[in-house]
Design a protein around this nucleic acid. Structure first.
Length: 425
RNA sequence: GGAGAGAUGGCAGAGUGGUCGAUUGCGGCGGUCUUGAAAACCGUUGUACCGAGAGGUACCGGGGGUUCGAAUCCCUCUCUCUCCGCCA
């Protein structure tokens, strides 16, 4: 979330930048400034009253000690009025404070100056393309048909056990999941990321910290009995490792990776986009997270994009990297690069990774700070994360792009992870 | 699920109504000593907000109450730990 003081000091900048995200912030910003000012006035008066009250209490205490009970009692009478005033001021302060907090979470993060103008996906900027689009054999099939033909994934079984969007992977279908997870984790570790295994359910504070709550409430599965949320991405538990933490500047950037299953309700998305592996309620993903110094966070972003690029290249999948336009960006992001791979039989691009710099937006919510050498005051850090990578669409692209009349070829880098298997028949 | 204990500064752990933002130890930082290090000794060491500054305010798990005054007393919620039961 945006810092209140920052909003107060830069109202026009906030409004102007959020317009790029197609968000009209004027009304909220004006309200925030008015409330913030009023809260400040109330605070000044209330604290002066409290100071007087504290002073009086000390005097009364001393009078009692000195045995001057009657003087003490008359002094007590004076406190009644002050107490009453403090109470009123405090309740006004609290009301304003709650209102401010509610308004504050309505404002999305400011997009970086690099973000292109635009309404939706069609306005995203293609910054890189790579790999070669394969020429498929006669009668090439989409991945959901291949998955059935080779008995790799059973969608109907998932429907029976749970519901749509919960596929059952079988045989090499299951093994390729495990192979990809291990491959991605090994790669991340080699690139300096510390591997962690986080919980898959998180509490409310964690959901708030990374920005899922309160706004994206309906996108997460919620266990009401214990008030826990199934994670939509490992970003949530991993980033929340650093909630309420002050780190040393010399330790930055902190690089963490985790594999997790991800759970998304995907309320309201239906149609051809959800076919097969294209959109699931449960899927696997390896996530990378960085905590960075504000001066270096765009270096980190660059580093992460280059890293993810090596993954799709090693898998030899045709890909492109998009810089998302204002209208297509997420609520919490300042700059986002999406990775898409070409799904040759569907003849469409599939998003397999989203790499973002959140700058101080999450860190402000998380109270994640760092301290420079010496006695410097703690400053808010920057957070970044990215998929590296999400599995289902990678699997879809592999099945489709690597299909041959004799079976599905296995990408070279995965062969050792599949016990030497080079082709799935 | 049953019973009990507890939640205090980076950590450990005192404090049971007043000068307590909080004793002390460890750790961290700075210094003395040393060729260097260790040891010893000395000093220092929470966060946020308000204020031009002096300084002020708040925070001892969260919320509420009693009181002139609460880390300390009362109520309530949450969480953690231990034992028993069940179970992977």
């Amino acid at each position: 979330m945006l810092n209140l003081k920052f909003i107060q000091d830069n109202p026009e900048l906030v409004i102007e930048r959020l317009a790029v995200k197609r968000f009209d912030a004027r009304a909220i910003v004006e309200k925030v400034i008015a409330l913030y000012q009023r809260r400040n006035e109330v605070q000044i008066v209330a604290e002066a009253q409290k100071a007087e009250m504290n002073q009086l209490s000390k005097v009364i205490g001393q009078l009692f000690k000195d045995g001057k009970a009657s003087e003490a009692n008359s002094a007590k009478e004076k406190t009644v009025e002050i107490k009453d005033q403090i109470k009123n001021l405090e309740s006004e302060f609290d009301v304003i404070d709650v209102e401010l907090a509610q308004l504050q979470v309505l404002l999305p993060n400011l997009p970086s100056p690099l973000v292109p103008e635009g309404k939706g996906a069609e306005d995203n900027l293609i910054v890189t393309t790579g790999g070669e689009i394969p020429v498929l054999p006669e009668g090439a099939k989409p991945h959901w048909e291949l998955a059935t033909q080779y008995d790799l994934i059973n969608f109907e079984l998932g429907v029976k056990i749970t519901g749509a969007g919960f596929p059952v992977y079988k045989g090499y279908g299951a093994r390729i999941q495990r192979a990809l997870i291990n491959f991605f984790l090994d790669q991340a570790r080699e690139h300096g990321y510390l591997e962690v295994q986080p919980p898959y359910l998180v509490n409310e504070a964690s959901g708030f910290g990374t920005g899922q709550l309160p706004d994206k409430e309906g996108q997460m599965y919620h266990d009401k009995t214990d008030n826990l949320y199934l994670i939509p991405t490992a970003e949530v538990p991993v980033t929340n490792i650093f909630r309420d933490v002050i780190v040393e500047a010399k330790d930055l950037p902190i690089k963490t990776t985790a594999y997790s299953a991800c759970f998304r309700r995907e309320a309201g998305s239906y149609g051809k986009d959800v076919r097969g592996l294209n959109r699931l309620h449960q899927f696997d993903k390896v996530e990378i997270v960085q905590i960075a110094h504000p001066d270096k966070s765009y270096e980190s972003l660059n580093d992460m994009v280059l890293y993810v690029q090596t993954l799709v290249e090693k898998l030899e999948l045709p890909y492109r990297i998009l810089r998302l336009c204002g209208g297509d960006m997420g609520f919490t992001s300042a700059l986002t690069y999406d990775f898409e791979v070409w799904s040759a039989a569907q003849e469409r691009w599939l998003e397999v990774s989203s790499v973002s710099n959140f700058e101080s937006f999450q860190a402000t919510r998380l109270k994640l700070r760092f301290r420079e050498e010496g006695r410097a005051k703690p400053q808010v850090a920057h957070t970044l994360n990215g998929s590296a990578l999400a599995l289902p669409r990678i699997v879809a692209a592999i099945l489709e792009n690597y299909q041959t009349p004799d079976g599905i070829r296995v990408p070279k880098v995965l062969v050792p992870y599949l016990g030497g298997c080079e082709i799935i028949r």
